[in-house]
């Protein structure tokens, strides 16, 4: 099939509007990284197995390596760059990951944190099992999961104490 020229599509990413030229076949992970220039979102396996490409769409965690960017028109996309507040203050989850040593190479971290955020937004006081279940689709090859779970527990405490979202 002959290649048609790219079409302009409006995407709402981190509460900003972007007009992005794309082909229907373009995957959200590639558009976010290459066209929009937000490289926090990582591409690992490209097959749904590792979770590194996790972003939130309307608050729910999805795999951007298996999502067409064109199908995201009219939806709210949140990437890791959208978590810090306007002043650049890190989200409690980001702070907790840093403080608890839940990051080593950091490749899994954006996806891990967004999956954690989706969990805490639905369930602000998850138990350890619930945290493990919510992160089952995010693989980390360096840190080990114990510190990651601890970081989510700590962030959950902070959020419940301070009422941050």
């Amino acid at each position: 099939m002959e290649m048609k020229p790219k079409q302009l599509v409006t995407l709402n990413i981190n509460e900003r509007t972007y007009e992005v030229p794309l082909h229907p076949r373009d995957l959200l992970v590639d558009v976010v990284r290459k066209e929009v220039g937000l490289t926090g979102t990582k591409k690992g396996c490209g097959q749904g197995d590792c979770g590194a490409c996790t972003v939130l769409i309307d608050g729910e965690p999805v795999l951007s390596c298996l999502t067409l960017a064109i199908a995201c028109q009219g939806k709210k996309i949140t990437t890791i760059e959208g978590l810090a507040d306007a002043k650049g203050e890190l989200h409690p989850l980001q702070q907790a990951y840093v403080q608890h040593g839940a990051i080593q190479c950091g490749y899994c971290t954006p996806g891990m944190i967004l999956a954690s955020k989706a969990l805490l937004d639905r369930n602000p006081r998850p138990d350890t099992e619930e945290i493990k279940r919510a992160l089952a689709g995010n693989l980390c090859r360096c840190t080990g999961y114990k510190r990651i779970v601890e970081a989510v527990e700590a962030a959950s405490e902070t959020i419940n104490k301070e009422g941050v979202k």
Binding site: P61, A115, A134
Partner: peptide
């Protein structure tokens, strides 16, 4: 079924 991401999609 799968992970929470897969179940969401």
């Amino acid at each position: 079924l799968g992970s929470v991401q897969v179940r969401t999609m």
